[in-house]
Structure formats: structure tokens, C-alpha cells
């Protein structure tokens, strides 16, 4: 039971963004949060990360109530992987990943051998050692995403939060990034990610949380809860969910496409 969220409510002024969210993210599982844009996924992540703290309800990470934990303590519990982005200043991949070791060094010193070794092993773990001297803005979006994941790994937390890790990636990179995320989950990391792609959820997720208008619509194993009806309610698209390879994989096809091909 790595992250337990109970009765989480959050509002921006009058507007209720999160309405009584209850969910448990288990160790070694990949939890995908799905739902249309503006549904409160990022707000929920910011609450879990301690960036927003005027929420109601309770968030426990590894058994600790995170309310009132300071920034350093939070960073020891949970690491965040933002969407791949262009920073204002360009850094080498190595320097970028090294920043994840901030909590391990005192404010007035600089990371040393131990931190550098962490960087090397994280890069190797994700198969991107060859990029270490490359410039962060000169590598592909998928590679950038892996670099940000490596940065989260050197933070040495057991819980990771990823904000749409496959956004703006081409198909190959989507698969590579998700494969790595999945294998991290298998190693024992607790991972929560947000995603927009139902097919990806069928293929990679152990657990989904479907949100609409700040409320939980469904919570469970993808093959149980991610139904045609749910996808229709979430995204207002009529779809047909098909099972492939003796139900080892499911795909979701818009009905309009099927009708067009008739």
C-alpha cells in the first residue's frame, strides 16, 4: 500500500476540482489515471507531490501522512517526472540527471563521486548511457523523457509520478518509454502516470483510475473497468473494444471508423 488517498477534495476558490477521491496505488503496480483534459489529474498530482497543500482529506505515502512534511522530506518520499520539455538553459544529459541528487548534498556543496555513480547506473538502467555527454535539447523527445525518468531514479525514492510520459512522442518512443516504466513497476516501484490513450492503458497498466469532473468514475483492473461505456462517458466517443490474442490485449476502435470502412 504505497500511496493511499482518502476523501481527497481540492478547490480553486469556489470551483471544486477534486471531489472526494479515494484510491490506493500499490507497490509494484503501474497506476494510470485517465480522463479528459482539465479533469483534475494534474491537481491531484500536485497534491500528492506536496506542491498544493490546502487540500481536504488525507494522502499517505509509504505509511506517512504527507500533510506538513517539508520540501526535503517530500523529495525523499516521491519523485516527479514532468512532461518532456525545453528548459530555458541547455544542459548535458549527465548534468540534467545529476540534479536529481539535490537532496543528497548540502546546500553549499556540489555532488561528488557517490552521486555521479548513481547517475551512471540510472543511465545504464534505462539504456541511455551513450547519451550522457549529449545536449538535453538535442536528443529525441523519447530520450528526453527517459532522461527525466533517470533523474527521478537518482532521487532514490520508491514512488514515482509521471505526467503524461508519452505526450508528443512518436509510436516507437511511446513503446520504449512505457516498456521502461512498466519494468520499473515490476522492480518494485510504485508508479502513477497520467495518460490519454486507452490502448496504452490496456497494454501496460495494472490498474486504472478514471476521472471525470473531479470525481472517480472507475477504479480497478483495465480489462474490468475500461469498458465501451466508460470510454464513451469519459471522452464522448462511441468505441468498440476488441479483444486480441485470447484476451491478452484489448484495443479500442472508434465506431465511426468501423462504419466508414463498411
Amino acid at each position: 500500500m504505497s500511496i493511499v488517498i482518502s476523501n481527497l477534495c481540492f478547490s480553486y476558490g469556489e470551483r471544486l476540482v477534486l471531489d472526494n477521491i479515494n484510491v490506493t496505488a500499490e507497490k509494484g503496480k503501474l497506476l494510470s489515471v485517465v480522463g479528459p483534459n482539465g479533469v483534475g489529474k494534474s491537481t491531484m498530482f500536485y497534491c500528492i507531490l506536496g506542491i498544493l497543500n490546502n487540500y481536504k482529506g488525507m494522502i499517505e505515502i509509504e505509511g506517512r501522512d504527507i500533510r506538513g512534511l517539508d520540501i526535503r522530506e517530500m523529495a525523499k518520499l516521491i519523485a516527479y517526472v514532468p512532461q518532456n520539455h525545453y528548459p530555458s538553459f541547455n544542459f548535458s544529459v549527465f548534468d540534467m540527471v545529476l540534479m536529481g541528487t539535490s537532496i543528497q548534498v548540502s546546500s553549499v556543496s556540489i555532488p561528488g563521486k557517490a552521486q555521479m555513480n548513481l547517475v551512471y547506473s540510472a543511465l545504464e538502467r534505462l539504456g541511455i548511457s551513450h547519451l550522457k555527454n549529449r545536449s538535453y535539447t538535442r536528443i529525441s523527445g523519447g530520450e528526453r523523457q527517459l532522461v527525466l525518468i533517470a533523474r527521478a531514479l537518482v532521487q532514490q525514492t520508491k514512488v514515482l509520478i509521471l505526467d503524461e510520459p508519452t505526450a508528443n512522442l512518436d509510436f516507437g518512443n511511446q513503446v520504449r518509454v512505457l516498456t521502461q516504466i512498466k519494468s520499473l513497476a515490476k522492480e518494485g516501484y510504485t508508479i502513477i502516470q497520467s495518460t490519454h490513450n486507452p490502448d496504452q492503458t490496456f497494454m501496460f497498466s495494472d490498474h486504472i483510475l478514471a476521472m471525470l469532473n473531479g470525481k472517480v468514475l472507475a477504479d480497478g483492473v483495465p480489462s474490468d473497468v475500461l469498458t465501451e461505456e466508460l470510454i464513451n462517458r469519459l471522452y464522448v466517443v462511441d468505441v468498440n473494444v476488441q479483444s486480441l490474442f485470447r484476451d491478452r490485449v484489448r484495443v479500442c476502435v472508434p465506431k465511426s471508423v468501423i462504419n466508414d470502412k463498411r
Binding site: L49, A75, K76, Y80, P87, S88, M99
Partner: peptide, 13 residues
């Protein structure tokens, strides 16, 4: 330089 939110999640105030 990465922005406030990212710095925060890496343990920097």
C-alpha cells in the same frame, strides 16, 4: 533554472 515546481519536487525550496 528548471522552474519552481520541478525544483520543489527535487527537494529544493
Amino acid at each position: 533554472t528548471l522552474g519552481d515546481e520541478e525544483a520543489r519536487t527535487m527537494g529544493i525550496n
